[in-house]
Amino acid sequence: MYAFGQILKTEAKLYLRDRSTLVLTVALPTLILVVLGSIPALREPSPDFGGRSFVAYFTPSLLVVTLAMIGVNALPTVLATYRERGILRRLATTPASPLALLVAQLVLALAGILASAVLLAVVARVAFGVPLPQHPLGFGAALLLGTVALLAVGLLVAAVAPTAKAAQSLAIPVFMVVMFFGGAYLPRFLLPDFLATVGGYTPPGVQALLDAWTGTAPQPLHLGIMAVVAVTAGAGAAKLFRWE
């Protein structure tokens, strides 16, 4: 346990030292929000968005940016790098377990996502009057399940990619699918109904996040799918993961 604490502490230091990744993963959605929010028209309430502004409508999709960046991009890259450079192997020769390093990375990814979500919600509220998530319990559940589902997908990528380069090239299509269906590239009202519906079921489940943010309880099916993705991808990762 002491060793795990030390690993977590060290990995946290390394995470904070990597400024560019930190900005890209934690601060990027808030930066995009600030850019969009500075355009007056996007702050006007509109019937297109159920009487809300575009900014308020788009904020949950910005959360998808963080989830995709950390879960599908940063996490598998770090883990594949650690394996490629023999860091996991060296750890395997000591009394500490490489599993401790993996768990520490998951804890940090979760912390990064939470920090990013809090930053986004607070800036959206304070700067642009976007109400905080109206269904806190549902939002917490949707965010947690969506995060776990994406981290599991990220672990699966890390499990099958032999090198950091391979992890990145595997992660890119997954990342683009997550971003596209999450409405981060094109706002979801521009997507055909069919695609927007599909987006409710692809991790991290943007529809559940949007529902909970605007005050409706997320649909159990949306949440259930995330749980299934998390368990399936997680089990696959556990089976396929190699320390070297």
């Binding site: 390394l14 990597d18 450079r85 023999g86 860091i87 192997r89 060296r90």
Partner: peptide, 12 residues
């Protein structure tokens, strides 16, 4: 054990 080609994180 000191393994062949075993590195550490760059910023450590």
């Amino acid at each position: 054990v000191q393994l062949q080609e075993s590195q550490l994180p760059d910023r450590l």
